[in-house]
């Protein structure tokens, strides 16, 4: 781990919804061009943690953050940080595919347009490139002008990934991106994640431990708002260091 480059450094992070503390003293490193999986039972704070990484929780009233989240050394919670610019760098994909009720083309072009790109050729190029990276281009390049609501759930999710890629982020956050998909669509997304990590740093929340084991390089186990164990995925699933981790991954939790 020593010679790995750190993309995000989280230091002693606390998070509150009102008076209720959801995260307690979480410290974690997210390494460049690696897939980091966050696992843990429902309510352990893993999704909340993911959302602190691009300040999505700012949108919820009454929340409070203590601690630091350093993106390439710069704290994203510093005053004066441009949150829109931050979310351009750190894209997000959600549990349910949530394409805009627009054409496939417009879904992908939306972000770049919002960031000021107007040139038609350039937009065409970004749309094609993003759809190719999301492994969707070959399936839908003949119907880019059709509604995104008319394609399958698995295709919609890959479209959402293409949409996130279109603004050229460094990091992709994925919150249970395959929980609404069938096994074949899931396998396609997993293949895609494997390819995407060449160019992006990926953090994924998943309820499927088998998925974490299959696709991630590092795994982090959360329990009741604390980060219990973090390490190489291989090691965590063969020989976890803490009993709490072993109990959870072997299904003896409770």
């Amino acid at each position: 781990m020593a010679n790995e480059q750190i993309k995000l450094m989280i230091e002693d992070l606390d998070f509150y919804y009102g008076d209720f503390q959801v995260l307690e003293g979480v410290s974690l490193k997210i390494l460049v061009n690696k897939v980091t999986a966050l696992i843990g039972p429902s309510g352990c704070g893993k999704s909340t943690f993911l959302r602190t990484l691009n300040r999505m929780n700012d949108l919820i009233e009454g929340t409070k953050v203590d601690g630091k989240v350093l993106l390439d050394g710069q704290d994203i919670y510093d005053k004066g940080v441009d949150v829109v610019g931050l979310r351009k760098k750190i894209g997000m994909v959600f549990q349910e595919p949530n394409p805009f009720p627009k054409s496939i083309y417009e879904n992908v072009a939306y972000g770049p347009r919002a960031h000021g790109i107007k040139d038609k050729d350039e937009l065409d190029h970004i749309v094609e490139d993003s759809l190719k990276k999301a492994a969707l281009w070959d399936e839908i390049n003949d119907r880019l002008d059709q509604s995104a609501m008319g394609i399958s759930g698995g295709q919609q999710q890959r479209l959402c990934i293409a949409r996130a890629l279109a603004v050229n982020p460094d990091i992709l956050l994925m919150d249970e991106p395959t929980s609404a998909l069938d096994p074949i669509a899931t396998a396609k997304i997993e293949d895609l994640i494997e390819n995407l990590k060449e160019d992006y740093t990926i953090v994924i929340v998943t309820h499927s431990m088998q998925q974490a084991a299959r696709i991630s390089d590092y795994t982090s186990f959360f329990l009741m708002g604390e980060m219990i164990e973090y390490g190489l995925t291989d090691k965590l699933f063969e020989k976890p260091e803490y009993k709490k981790t072993e109990d959870y991954i072997t299904g003896r939790f409770g």
């Binding site: 084991a213 699933f237 063969e238 020989k239 072993e246 991954i249 072997t250």
Partner: peptide, 9 residues
């Protein structure tokens, strides 16, 4: 059962 950790070993 997809055993892991000690179960798998």
């Amino acid at each position: 059962q997809q055993p892991v950790a000690r179960d798998l070993r």
